[in-house]
Write a protein that binds this DNA or RNA. Structure first.
Length: 762
DNA sequence: GGTCGCACTTAGAAGTGATCCA
DNA sequence: TGGATCACTTCTAAGTGCGACC
């Protein structure tokens, strides 16, 4: 079968990974040293491959890497770069307009021009007075894969829904007496009553095919961070043992540090250095001359004050808490929704990020820098011309109001740490996100149809005369087999040193002709996204192994493993193999196909619902391991395991006691032979059975928790697993969908829940 | 053809609040 | 009833990949 690519052997069972925030030597890197052997290398390759295509690429790479050599220029360059970016953005905004000719957009299978249809009014809609015309769109008939299923009649649908609810009830009834956890089915039923009956089924409608994302967009703009509230006068900051009254801007930045005092960050040298540098920029000249050493600063009183405040918040009365809740709800109702093409849609993040200290992951060179406060003057608003534009706070103005319907964001601003753009976008349950998600899984399903051909091709390419093709083929093999990320090149000194497949360096792999009884083993050990360690030992095919040996020849540890390859070359090649194919599609495909296979393998028809859910979680876990989705073990992990073990021990004692009682009851019954003692035996028997079941449950829970210690299931569930596989599985085995997806997840995957039947095949 | 900016997805951590249990 | 625990939500960093531009 196309989907089977040995994942189970290579990673699913790989128990050797460790979650370890990767500590990185500051090896990275003297660029000249890094490439000092390239000339030699190139000559070697020339003689081996008699290939001319490869030769310029490494030179180019070399040139690029040298260009930021002078660290002293970085800040100026950064400033200039930001200015440059801003300028370009401004120019772009001038030229970008909904009225302009739409640029060609490649949308897999989205190909026909839109046509506005009339749509009946509904409570779900939220009309703008300026926008009365309806915006239903037309679908292309050729669009087979993404074609929504035939719309059922209302009666059919209701009957089916009722039937489903009845079926679910059957499952739910016996467990109703037991715990009714949040997100559990009982709860879900209660909540379902509150949810509006009819949700907008965007997946049954036509899609835009001209590259536009919307025709009408209206929103209230962002919610800004609350202004800084100065500390009470009795809370002091001390320098060198003496109290120092700070100016308000300096005090505000000091509080950012004080709030993080308990965090490991504040012990890190880079963090402290960056913080102090940026803090000084906020100080008055007098403060600057007085406060010269961070080690002499004492933030303890501030820190205690914030801790006390946090404690006080926890201790607030019910009424006070309720008041805050209501206020939050009011803000949500006002700012948390927008109107996009006649539908009220939830916004994902409508609050502007508050100022604070930058928390980069891993050994981030910029950690501790001051994330400045974002003001209305930094904000670009995106909405439609004919909408009611959001108003800036009194006395301020927006940087710009733009009407670009080729993008999905509502608000954007440029952050000051990396100079990148931040956005306010819609919630995952929105049409715009859902369509994209659906499309992603359809692309992955198309890969399924041609993956055998692609695999045959890259295996063939392992023998190519051209080094660049061999490298491409080996890299693709890793991306496919190990679900590695593409590995874009990164600007040095700007971010933590992390890599993906194409950016692997020699130091990240070790080759073993034989290891633990296996031939041709490759050991990977590198910091991946978010500086999460990827550690894996896998046996590979001989030809891959030989190729890797060749790639490593005459290279230094800090040299690129694939020096003839980058993500752009790889993706260009993939695009030729299949329309819309990129490196990340392999991750989606392999994750989804693994889930489907594992579910088939692990689900036993005779199992009860909890056992089936355990099987589902195990299948999900197999994918999480494949994708290396790790988490730091919860701080309370050891303790909670200990508590669970105590419970298990107590339950075991209880079981022994119950068994003893049963034995003695049996003995009594033997002697007395009356109804009363017989009944007592039955009661004791039942008690033993019940305790045995409880014990088993606790033991399963312990196993599950232990297996999940360092594995995060959520990421794969939300981003890589085609939800239709899970929905079909639930329908097939009568498992309530609420057991697999919580409310938010059900909203995100509403399209899949509605359209997938039990016989859906990825 | 390469570089860079932009738009968007993917990611783990932190924060919050509901539920459990002594 | 209140503290502990855990599921869920929010936050925002860190990736990918496309396309404009030089």
């Amino acid at each position: 079968m196309s989907g089977d690519h040995g994942h189970k052997d290579s990673q699913v069972d790989s128990g050797s990974r460790v979650n370890d925030s990767h500590k990185h030597k500051d090896k990275h890197k003297d660029k000249e040293r890094k490439h000092k052997d390239h000339k030699k290398d190139k000559e070697r390759e020339k003689s081996k491959c008699s290939n001319s295509e490869y030769k310029d690429f490494s030179e180019k790479k070399h040139k690029d890497k040298v260009k930021h050599k002078d660290g002293s220029l970085e800040r100026h360059k950064e400033k200039d770069k930001h200015k440059d970016k801003e300028k370009r953005r401004e120019e772009k905004s001038k030229s970008s307009s909904v009225d302009g000719k739409p640029k060609k957009e490649k949308e897999n299978g989205f190909a026909s021009p839109p046509r506005i249809k009339s749509e009946p009014d509904s409570d779900d809609f939220y009309h703008s007075p300026k926008h009365e015309k309806s915006l239903k769109r037309e679908r292309d008939d050729d669009d087979y894969e993404l074609k929504p299923k035939k719309i059922k009649t209302e009666n059919e649908k209701k009957a089916k829904k009722r039937k489903q609810e009845e079926d679910e009830d059957e499952d739910i009834k016996p467990r109703k007496k037991t715990k009714d956890k949040k997100g559990g089915e009982g709860d879900a039923k209660k909540k379902a009553k509150k949810e509006p009956e009819e949700k907008w089924k965007w997946w049954e409608e036509e899609r835009y095919t001209d590259g536009s994302k919307w025709k009408f967009l209206e929103h209230k703009g962002p919610v800004f961070a609350p202004p800084y509230e100065p500390l009470p006068s009795n809370i002091k900051f001390y320098y060198d043992g003496k109290p120092v009254k700070l100016s308000t801007p300096a005090e505000e930045v000091a509080t950012f540090f004080a709030k993080m005092l308990d965090h490991e960050y504040t012990t890190k040298d880079i963090f402290r250095k960056n913080f102090f540098k940026d803090w000084k920029k906020e100080m008055t000249s007098e403060e600057k001359s007085k406060i010269t050493d961070l080690n002499k600063c004492n933030f303890a009183e501030m820190s205690e004050y914030f801790q006390a405040q946090s404690e006080a918040r926890k201790q607030m009365s019910k009424e006070e808490k309720q008041k805050i809740k209501e206020e939050n709800e009011r803000v949500l109702q006002e700012y948390g929704f927008c109107v996009m093409d006649n539908h009220k849609e939830r916004i994902g993040n409508f609050r502007i990020e508050p100022p604070g200290l930058f928390r980069g992951r891993g050994d981030h060179p910029k950690m501790g820098m001051l994330k400045r406060r974002i003001r209305p003057e930094d904000i670009i608003i995106n909405c439609s011309k004919d909408s009611k534009h959001p108003k800036p706070p009194p006395g301020t103005k927006w940087k710009e109001v733009r009407h670009d319907n080729k993008v999905t964001w509502l608000v954007s601003w440029t952050e000051n740490i990396q100079g990148s753009i931040k956005y306010i976008m819609l919630n995952p349950s929105s049409r715009i996100k859902g369509e994209k998600d659906w499309q992603k899984y359809e692309t992955a399903r198309r890969l399924k149809k041609c993956v055998d051909r692609i695999r045959a091709q890259y295996r063939d390419d392992w023998k190519s005369k051209e080094m660049r093709i061999r490298q491409r083929a080996v890299a693709l093999y890793f991306i496919d087999k190990l679900a590695l990320r593409a590995g874009n090149e990164k600007e040095e000194g700007e971010t933590a040193d992390t890599v993906g497949c194409c950016s692997l360096r020699v130091e990240h792999i070790k080759l073993y002709p034989e290891l633990d009884g296996q031939e041709f083993v490759v050991e990977f050990d590198f910091p991946g996204k978010d500086s999460i360690r990827y550690y894996n030992k896998i046996p590979v095919e001989k030809r891959v192994f030989k190729n890797l040996q060749l790639f490593l020849e005459n290279k230094q540890p800090e040299d690129d493993l694939f020096d003839r390859l980058n993500t752009s070359i790889l993706n260009k090649h993939l695009q030729e193999l299949m329309d819309g194919l990129t490196a990340k599609v392999f991750r989606t495909y392999n994750a989804s196909i693994t889930l489907q296979q594992q579910l088939k393998e692990l689900t036993s028809p005779e199992e009860n619902i909890p056992a089936k859910i355990l099987s589902y979680n195990r299948a999900n876990r197999a994918v999480a391991i494949l994708c290396n989705h790790q988490r730091a073990p919860p701080k309370t992990f050891e303790k909670s395991m200990q508590n669970l073990q105590t419970k298990i021990d107590a339950k075991k004692d209880q079981l022994s006691e119950a068994r003893r009682e049963l034995k003695s009851a049996k003995a009594d019954a033997k002697v007395q032979k009356d109804e009363k003692t017989k009944k007592a035996v039955e009661t004791k028997k039942k008690a033993v059975q019940r305790i045995e079941e409880q014990l088993m449950k606790l033991e399963v829970q312990a196993t599950d928790r232990e297996e999940n210690k360092q594995i995060a299931l959520g990421t794969s569930k939300l981003n890589y697993l085609d939800p239709r596989i899970s929905v079909a599985w639930c329908k097939k085995w009568n498992v309530p969908i609420e057991k697999i997806y919580n409310k938010t997840q059900r909203e995100k995957f509403a399209w899949a829940i509605d359209m997938a039947d039990e016989d859906f095949e990825f």
